[in-house]
Design a protein around this nucleic acid. Structure first.
Lengths: 214, 214, 214, 214
DNA sequence: AATGAATGAGAGTTCATTCAT
DNA sequence: TATGAATGAACTCTCATTCAT
């Protein structure tokens, strides 16, 4: 009950987190190139030079943010998929989790996606490879559903592009203060996705209570 | 006697077009803020200062490009919709035309969409208003289809977001040299969209021969 | 008689020359790394950004200065040597010209010599190669004098190092307003050099009137 | 009872020496202004802030290094001179010791010489005064030799400049792994110097075994 | 219609140094 | 005796833009 010293969080790390938080806000709002280190520093209430104690460069702030987002997205979706047995069940779980995750981490999602161009060659190629692998996972679920007769769709590759675009796009418009709860939005997307694949609508499951930090 | 003024375009306009072409390429590839006026000038084979004879500022290049794109997109889609009578027929036509247009003008589409943030307040609000109106057109077709009993969908607003995201996204991945022709891609999207709305798939029509330049 | 437009010198080049003049002064006085672009700009009475219209980088200012100095030094010394026939005569002429040139262009000489370290790999290697070739020229004259019996010295390589060090060093202490004229200093060095090589002192010749610009 | 203080150097002094050693290496290789405190710290395997326990400032590292070098150079040369009676003998001994000392402590010699400019006014003037006094010692030996009839040279002041330049320059090119031993190089310089002053070559003496560290 | 030259602001980054611990 | 964190000033360089010609 009484622990006041949270495990692992030393004093200095608070600065790092303030910088990251300021950066993701500004990158999302204005874009990477339109955000200056001075603005990040100012929003994080530190001096510009202090940022360099925590990050090697402006680009490193971005890559860390993107890598973290991809790590957590992959883990969340893979866990959700692992709990299901059939292709429609797996795809529904993946869509649900993807939408929820993109709603909860909308700015990180948007920055990860939209600022791939801002990266230099090596980190750009790395991130593109991760995105491609993630996309392949969705395409394979669709292909499995076609093979099992659950889905009737002419082109699984195009379908996978379309599905990820509409689900990722939730990060662009979802408003936590809006009329629709994230669970509802996720359920609607499951319905849209399965419908577009020609599946019976019965497969949609429920999404448990979200207890994510942040 | 013989015309000295070559049809339509005076000599100088070629420079303006070279600048626009260079700008759309660079904005699409690197982003607005990552593209310098010097780079545009260099790609257009003019001096940096010459750009200012044709455009007031860097932002004006962008706004003109975005306005042109929206003008032509709206015209093309409205014309396609006007040729159809039923809600499913109209939506199918709109999706088909939207996809084809975004495939044909992928860079303009991408820049129009992704560089809204780069605009200053007034042009940004103007463009957002146009996008909203365009989106509303889609939502109203969906609502009409629900009312007419052609579509069975729980939330037309969310459906309109999802549909436009997946169809607009074609500009991100379509490759003119790829395996699929644009007409095929458009047909697949009509199929996906109508399926997601719970419509019978019979409504998909044909897309006339495309004669657009570019 | 009446030409007012000096051949080749367009208006803008005056700025370039002002920048070069400011840079050589500051580099000589404080060193390359202790001189900022702002200081150069200020001394040249231009804005810092204007420097970049004329030079790609700070390093380019330095390399141009060094290359120019080496070009002119080599030309001057080679011409002086070509006018002589015997090894002692050639070496005397080379020493005389080297000393005079280093006195007339003391700052350029000093900067060329002392700021080799400041260069990045490629231009540094290039300049070192030029210096080595120049030094080799002196060593070969000494070796020729030893072979012809004019010089009696145990180690021509070491002698060439020593000779160039003492003659180059004139740039460090020569004062145009001092008691000794440059011609006298050059004559003394010819005397010292030939003496150190064990040559008869009779070979020292006269140095013609200097008509160098600057 | 038994000494806990290890002979001469307390534990901490090792850190000071590591810093000095790192600094002289880096200053010699890159120059004072091109060397950062972080680089010195890194090379000395301490934290940047730790340097400030041992030195007040970056400049103090340099001045201590220069002062130490001058102390030891003066002591060594004065001792060598004191062992000789005649002007040629004294000058030969001074040249021999100067060359050997500059070969043994080449980096310190180079940094002491080349980084006078980097000093602020007061330490710069102090070091210049020491150099001048050292130079005067050589000039006086030359003048004594001229007076005694051992040397025939027209200008002792210029001769002293030239002699010190060529002998000091040994620090620039001497390579401990090269073909020539330091004693041989010293002997050659004695030969060159006495030759340049018009002295009989017989005076060159021997240099005792060097047992200096480094 | 176009250009070479220039500008003032601001970019990302590094600097020597300080200080609480 | 030493350190992690931070600072304010300064660095080289690039930016969109202007202007006389």
């Amino acid at each position: 009950m009484a622990e006041t010293k949270t495990t692992g969080a030393r004093r200095g790390e608070a600065t790092r987190e303030a910088i990251e938080a300021a950066a993701v806000d500004l990158f999302a709002e204005r874009g990477y190139h339109a955000t200056s280190m001075r603005e990040i520093a100012s929003a994080a209430k530190v001096q510009p030079a202090a940022i360099y104690h925590w990050f090697d460069s402006k680009e490193k702030i971005l890559t860390r943010l993107q890598d973290d987002f991809m790590d957590r997205l992959e883990a969340a979706v893979e866990e959700a998929v692992a709990a299901e047995a059939t292709p429609p069940g797996q795809l529904a779980a993946a869509v649900r989790e993807h939408v929820v995750f993109h709603g909860l981490h909308a700015r990180e999602a948007f920055v990860t996606d939209s600022e791939i161009r801002a990266l230099s060659t090596r980190p750009r190629n790395r991130l593109i490879a991760r995105r491609d692998a993630y996309q392949t996972m969705f395409r394979q679920m669709i292909e499995a559903g076609v093979k099992s007769g659950d889905f009737t769709i002419s082109n699984p590759a195009v379908a996978s592009y379309a599905i990820l675009l509409e689900c990722t796009g939730v990060a662009l418009w979802y408003d936590p203060k809006g009329a629709l709860a994230l669970d509802e939005i996720a359920a609607i997307h499951v319905e849209l996705v399965l419908g577009s694949l020609g599946a019976a609508p019965k497969v949609a499951g429920r999404t448990g209570a979200r207890k994510e930090r942040r």
